[in-house]
Design a protein around this nucleic acid. Structure first.
Lengths: 410, 410
DNA sequence: GGCATTATTTCATTGCCCGAAAAAATGGAT
DNA sequence: ATCCATTTTTTCGGGCAATGAAATAATGCC
C-alpha cells in the first residue's frame, strides 16, 4: 500500500524535487528551478527561503562577467557545503580509497590505502576502515563533526540484509558486518553498494547520449560484473544486485574463483583468459591476481595473431555474449557498455560476443543492443557513489525537515 | 523528474488509495477504509461522499445476519457496477475467450471462440476479435455503452511499443497491430499483456502466503513462459516482459518452435518432451500441437518408470533448472511457482531441476527459492487481467476525476 | 533620469487534510 | 419502554502548502 498524501508529504515531495534539480544540474536561479520542477515562482521563493534559513541552500555571489543581459540579474542558489559531509569508501582488490565529500559534492579530502592480501586478515575490515576514517577526521575536524553517512562500494555477493558480503574477491573481506561495524563506531547510516551498479549509473551519467537509455554495464577485468541502469524507477534506483559474472555459462565447466564451475567469469575474467591462453587445464585453481602488465602483454599477443591468445579471447567473448543473450530473455537493455581492463581487448572478443548475443530470439526480433566500450572505470564509480549518497541524504533527511517560516516570522 | 505535489495530486493519490483498498479487498466500511489507507475518518467521509455523488461507489445494503454487535452497524461501500465496463480477451493457441466485466469486477457476459489454425489467416485478428466483441455488445447494450478499455492476454514477443507481436505461437497472430486495430474500432485504450506476467500476478494473488513474496511463475505446457511478480514497484507493476522459454539453454542445441536452437522451450515444452521420449532427433521440426491426452499418457509412462520418458522429463527439468539458475544471477525470487500441464509432471522433473538450480553461486549463498506447483492456470490469468485493467482504470481515470462537493452544496 | 525587461517576493485565495466533537444507529440493561 | 454504552459516520474549525496576480527589486539601454 502506498503512502498517503497530506500537506507534509506534499512539502517533502516538492522540496525533494528542488534538491534533485540542483543535485543533477548544479546551482540554478530560482526562475530556472521553477521551470525545471514545474512549481510556481511563489512556491520556489517559499521553499528556497525556508531552506536558506535552515542552511541547506545558499545564494551564490558571482559576478558573471559573461554576457550581461537586460533585467534584474538572476542569483543562483546552490547547496551549502557545510550542512553535512559524507564518507565514501571504494574497496578494490588491492587498495581502498576513502573520500570525505561536502554536502555540495566537493571533495574535501582523500586517503588512499593500499590493501596487501593479508590486510583484512591482520586487522578486521571495520577496524581498518575506521582507522582510515579517523585519519580523515583528524585532518578535517569541522567536516568530521557533520558527517552524516558512510557509503561503501564493494565487490561480491551481498547478504539479504545488505550488511555484509557472503563472498568477495577481496581477500578476507567476506563475513564482516560492515554496516553495523562502522555504523556503531560512527553512529551514522552505512550503506554497501555493489560496484557494478555504481559503474552502470556512472557510465550512464558520463555519456549524455545514454541519459534515457537502458544500460547494461559489464566490467571485465579481475572479475566480471554487471550493473543495470535506466532512468525510470524499477531497474534504475531499486535495481537488484546482479551477479552476472557468476551466471552459469557451461554446466560443469571451467573452475571459477568463487568455487563453482562454469561461471561466465571462469571464461572471461583476466585469470580465465590467461589460463586459456597458456592451455592450463580449465579446472586448475585460478591465479589470485593477474598483474596489469601481464594482461596487457596477452592482449598484445592476441592482436599479433597468436592462436592460443586469440582462442582465449574468443572464448571470453563467447561467454559474455551468451550471458547477455540470456539476460535479454529477461530484460532488454538498449545499450551495453564494456568497461575495465577487458574493454581494451574488446576488438579481440567482439565477433564471438556479437555472434553469441545475436543468437537469441529477442535480439533477432527486437534488434541488437548497441555496444560501446569505456576505458576508465574509476571516475564513474566515485561519481555514482557521490550521487547516490547525497541524493539519498536529500530525499531521506533534508527534504523531510520541518519548515521554519512560521517561527521566523514570529 | 518526478511529478510535483499540489492539492490536485494529493487528491488523486488519496482517492487512488481508497480505490486500491476496495479493489484488493472488496467492499469495506468507511472505518475499515480509514484503517487500511491511513487516512482520517473525516477524509474518508469526504472522499466517499464525493465518489458516491459521481456514481463511482455505492453503499451496499446488506442485512448481515451473522454476528450482530453493539453500536451503529457499518455500511460497506463498494464499486458501482454500472460506472464502466471493460472487455478482457484471452488469446490462447486454439481458442479465444472474450469477457465483458463490470466496474465492480463482476462477469457480465462471456463468449468462447474456437480458433482453428487458419482462423487468423482467413480473418485478420482485429476484425475477428471485433466480431466477437460486437456479439457481446449486442447482448449487453447497457454495458456496451460504457465500455472503457480492452485488455488482451497474448503469448509471444511484443514489439517495443507493445502494439503488436513480432512473434507468437498463435498461428498468424504476429504482425497485426491489435492496439490501433481495435482501438480505432472502439475508440478506447487497448492494452496487450503477456500471459506469463498475468499468470504471475494471478498466482501471487491466489496464494495469500505469497502476498509479499517475489515470485517467478513458470508455465510449462505447449510453451514455456515466465512472469515475475512482487509487491513493490520495480519488478511488480512495471516488470518487463520476460522471454524465459526462449532463453538459451544449450548453444546450437535442440530446434525450438521459434526457429532458434537451444531455447529452454526446445527441451521443456510438451512437444520437446514428446520428441525426446520418442527419440526423435532434436533438430526435427516441432509438432504443431500435442493433445492433452497424449501428454498425460507420457506422464503416466514416466511415472511407471519408462526409461525414455523419464529421460525426457529429466532433460526438461534440467533445462528449466538451469534457466532459473541463470535467472538468479540477475534477480533472486523468493518463490518459484510451476503452473500449467507440466506442473503435473513436476515430480518427474524435480530432482534434475533442483540440482541445476542449486548449482549456482547465488543459490548456494542465499539459499534456494521455495518451489511450488499450481494446477489450474485459467483462473489466475483472468483474475490478473481483471485486476490490472480495472486497477489502471481506477488510477488513471477515476482517481483523477474532479470533485463535485462545492457544486453539490451550491 | 526614465523606460523596458527580467527576477523575486508579497498577498489573498483555494483545496485538501486533520483532530475533536457531535450526531446517528444499534444492542443490552433496567 | 427507556436509558446507556458502544461503534460508525458526519460536521466543524483550523492549518498548511501551493497558486495566480500584482507588487517590488535590480539592471541595461536610450
Amino acid at each position: 500500500m502506498r503512502a498517503i498524501g497530506d500537506s507534509d508529504s506534499m512539502r517533502r515531495q516538492n522540496r525533494a524535487l528542488v534538491l534533485e534539480a540542483l543535485r543533477t544540474l548544479g546551482p540554478q536561479s530560482r526562475t530556472q528551478i521553477a521551470g525545471l520542477t514545474g512549481l510556481s515562482h511563489a512556491s520556489i521563493t517559499a521553499i528556497t527561503q525556508d531552506m536558506s534559513a535552515q542552511e541547506v541552500l545558499v545564494e551564490l555571489e558571482e559576478t558573471r562577467a559573461d554576457f550581461k543581459t537586460r533585467g534584474r540579474p538572476a542569483t543562483r542558489v546552490g547547496f551549502a557545503r557545510a550542512l553535512a559531509s559524507v564518507v565514501l569508501v571504494e574497496i578494490e582488490v588491492a587498495r581502498a580509497r576513502l573520500s570525505l565529500v561536502g554536502y555540495d559534492a566537493t571533495l574535501v579530502d582523500r586517503i588512499e590505502m593500499p590493501l596487501p592480501p593479508r590486510a583484512f586478515q591482520e586487522t578486521a575490515p571495520p577496524a581498518l576502515l575506521e582507522q582510515g576514517i579517523r585519519r580523515l577526521f583528524d585532518r578535517n575536524q569541522r567536516e568530521a563533526a557533520r558527517m552524516r553517512r558512510i557509503a561503501i562500494s564493494v565487490q561480491g555477493i551481498l547478504d539479504a540484509a545488505g550488511h555484509s558480503l557472503t563472498w568477495s574477491p577481496v581477500p578476507h573481506l567476506a563475513g564482516h558486518d560492515l554496516v553495523n561495524g562502522l555504523g556503531s563506531r560512527f553512529d551514522v547510516p552505512v550503506e554497501l553498494t555493489k560496484r557494478g551498479r555504481l559503474l552502470a549509473e556512472g557510465a550512464r551519467w558520463l555519456d549524455p547520449s545514454l541519459k534515457d537509455a537502458e544500460v547494461a554495464t559489464v566490467f571485465v577485468g579481475a572479475t566480471v560484473a554487471m550493473g543495470l541502469s535506466a532512468s525510470g524507477p524499477g531497474f534504475g534506483r531499486d535495481a537488484r544486485a546482479t551477479e552476472f559474472g557468476h551466471m552459469n555459462h557451461v554446466p560443469g565447466g571451467a573452475l571459477c574463483r568463487c568455487g563453482m564451475q562454469g561461471c561466465i567469469e571462469a571464461y572471461a575474467a583476466d585469470y580465465a583468459i590467461l589460463r586459456a591462453a597458456y592451455s592450463v587445464p580449465e579446472k586448475a585453481t585460478p591465479a589470485p591476481a593477474v598483474p596489469a602488465a601481464e594482461f596487457d602483454a596477452l592482449i598484445a599477443r592476441g592482436q599479433a595473431g597468436d592462436r592460443a591468445a586469440v582462442h582465449a579471447f574468443n572464448q571470453a567473448g563467447r561467454a559474455i555474449g551468451y550471458g547477455l543473450n540470456r539476460l535479454t530473455a529477461l530484460f532488454r537493455p538498449s545499450h551495453v557498455v564494456i568497461v575495465g581492463p577487458g574493454a581494451r581487448a574488446y576488438p579481440l572478443m567482439r565477433l564471438e560476443l556479437e555472434a553469441a548475443l545475436g543468437n537469441s530470439l529477442v535480439a533477432r526480433h527486437s534488434g541488437m543492443p548497441q555496444i560501446r566500450t569505456l576505458k576508465d572505470e574509476g571516475e564513474p564509480i566515485f561519481h555514482g557513489l557521490v550521487l547516490q549518497t547525497l541524493g539519498a541524504l536529500d530525499r531521506e533527511e533534508i527534504a523531510g525537515m520541518p519548515g521554519v517560516r512560521g517561527a521566523a516570522a514570529g
